[in-house]
């Protein structure tokens, strides 16, 4: 059964049609690469799945159950986590505070509930350890390298046991060594049975970790195929429009 199923998703921003009639399936433990040119609608799709925007039309189903997300919190509650393109980190806060941003751990102090920094530091240290990252929970994000910032953003998705992790260009602005780390991490997520939707411009990354590749062009889905059944050349053609579509052919 599919973990995440999108059916007929469309999104308008005023006169701009960012997405039209996009349907996608994502299975447990599967990595789906979503590719497309700038402005193709990839980030918009991620934000709809994550509850940042409501779709103009279409439905989202998780484990066969239809879901409506009014807020990111609703999607989080259902086990959907996102690593945003800009990482969505607060430079002025510590790594631990960023990992738990919006869902800070608290403890009782008499009649009050106060933020439990010690517990947040401990748990984020444990997550960083599983990611084999040297990021220290107490450090301010402002002083961190690109790879460490990436680790913070990814650690954030692992706070709750997620069902689906959406990654918007996680390897866009980091060094080659760090890309390898992130790809390793994606494999680790997959091995835990998490369904991963990976948006990337980098063809080698997508071919390295994805089981399937889908292509968006000007808001419409033009391909959804097994990685083994395609090639970087074909994907490039689909992205640019040199190849019209892969639908109607055997996948």
């Amino acid at each position: 059964m599919s973990r995440l199923r999108l059916t007929g998703i469309s999104k308008h921003f005023g006169a701009i049609q960012a997405l039209s009639d996009v349907s996608l399936d994502l299975a447990e433990g599967q990595v789906l690469g979503l590719m497309g040119d700038n402005g193709a609608g990839k980030s918009t799709l991620v934000k709809i799945i994550a509850g940042n925007f409501a779709p103009t039309h279409g439905t989202i189903a998780l484990d066969g159950r239809p879901c409506t997300f009014h807020r990111p919190r609703d999607a989080q509650r259902e086990g959907i986590e996102v690593v945003y393109q800009d990482l969505a980190l607060c430079d002025n806060l510590t790594a631990a505070s960023n990992v738990f941003l919006g869902r800070e751990l608290t403890r009782r102090l008499g009649p009050l509930r106060i933020v439990d920094y010690a517990a947040m530091r401990q748990r984020s240290a444990a997550i960083f350890a599983t990611l084999k990252s040297e990021t220290r929970p107490r450090d301010l994000v402002r002083r961190m390298s690109g790879g460490q910032r990436q680790a913070v953003a990814i650690a954030r998705t692992l706070v709750a046991e997620p069902k689906v992790v959406l990654m918007d260009e996680p390897t866009a602005a980091i060094s080659v060594r760090q890309v390898a780390e992130v790809l390793d991490l994606i494999r680790r997520l997959r091995d835990r049975g998490i369904a991963v939707l990976l948006i990337s411009h980098r063809m080698p990354d997508v071919f390295a970790v994805c089981d399937r590749i889908a292509v968006l062009r000007r808001g419409a889905l033009v391909a959804d195929m097994a990685t083994a059944a395609t090639s970087p050349e074909e994907v490039t053609g689909l992205i640019t429009g040199a190849i019209e579509t892969r639908f109607g052919r055997a996948a």
Binding site: P72, V82, A88, D91, N92, V115
Partner: peptide, 19 residues
């Protein structure tokens, strides 16, 4: 308090994490 500083640090991040 944490959220006030998070909003000042990166408002869109605060929004996206459901604050």
């Amino acid at each position: 308090g944490q959220h006030v500083f998070a909003i000042g640090g990166n408002e869109s991040a605060a929004l996206m994490t459901g604050i």
